[in-house]
């Protein structure tokens, strides 16, 4: 099995300086391993740090201690030690991340937003692929040239997914990808996740309902197990 992610003894807490330095422990001594073709669902009650874990792997959050190793060009990179520049290269090559929220510059068209990660293919090919994804996710073609800032929550979420799947990377981090979708689109997204997995990507996801989780996961990692006994 080709391992792509290895987490050793990871600890995370937040220190809120604006609230008198309150320290909030999230999880500690977390261990996790993930290989290509595997799909692990992160579970646990809300507030357990499911999103935080994804963000630490993506480099958006810092961690207190422990290692987050990601395979990059046959070498293990420890994310907490990566410089911003190394992190950017790592994201570019290895880690895809679909968040719950779409953050875009107003006025940029939906098609451009989805095509952006794959512009290196050339503008035409990038737009073609972007169009295919949007079509599959049932975004009507007459919306493609509009900025998604005015779209409904579900539409925005689908644009976000299209962008996240434009370039399939070896490690996919999914933060409630189906949260605000109707049944039809949910099925499409779950199919897309399974396809990525079959192509060899490793998938680490947070899902808001059990049904979805079971359809796309081969294993589970319950964060409640890594909560320090209070």
């Amino acid at each position: 099995m080709n391992q792509i992610l290895r987490i050793n003894d990871l600890c995370k807490s937040f220190v809120l300086h604006t609230q008198g330095g309150t320290k909030i422990d999230v999880f500690s001594d977390l261990n996790l391993e993930l290989s290509g073709g595997e799909a692990i669902a992160i579970t646990g009650p809300s507030g357990m740090g499911k999103s935080s874990l994804l963000k630490i792997i993506y480099g958006s959050y810092k961690s207190d201690s422990g290692e987050v190793l990601v395979k990059h060009q046959d070498e293990w990179c420890n994310i907490p030690d990566c410089s911003p520049r190394e992190m950017i290269a790592l994201r570019e090559a290895e880690i895809g991340y679909v968040s719950q929220f779409l953050r875009v510059i107003p006025r940029v068209s939906t098609l451009d937003i989805v095509a952006e990660p794959i512009l290196h293919l050339g503008k035409l090919d990038a737009e073609k692929r972007a169009g295919e994804l949007l079509e599959r996710l049932n975004i009507p073609q007459n919306l493609w040239q509009l900025s998604p800032t005015t779209f409904s929550g579900g539409e925005q979420q689908r644009v976000n997914i299209a962008r996240g799947f434009a370039k399939i990377r070896p490690l996919l981090l999914l933060d409630e990808p189906t949260a605000s979708l109707d049944a039809i689109n949910r099925a499409v997204v779950l199919d897309m996740i399974n396809e990525a997995r079959l192509e060899g990507s490793a998938i680490l996801g947070v899902y808001h309902n059990i049904e979805d989780r079971e359809k796309v996961s081969s294993g589970e990692c319950n964060l409640a197990n890594f909560r320090e006994a209070a």
Binding site: F14, V15, L16, H17, T18, K55, G59, S60, M87
Partner: peptide, 21 residues
Amino acid sequence: QGLTDQILDDPQAAYSQLLVS
């Protein structure tokens, strides 16, 4: 200093936290 999303999503210094909040 760091990646934009890291500074804005998980600011470490007291002043950065104040700025973001």
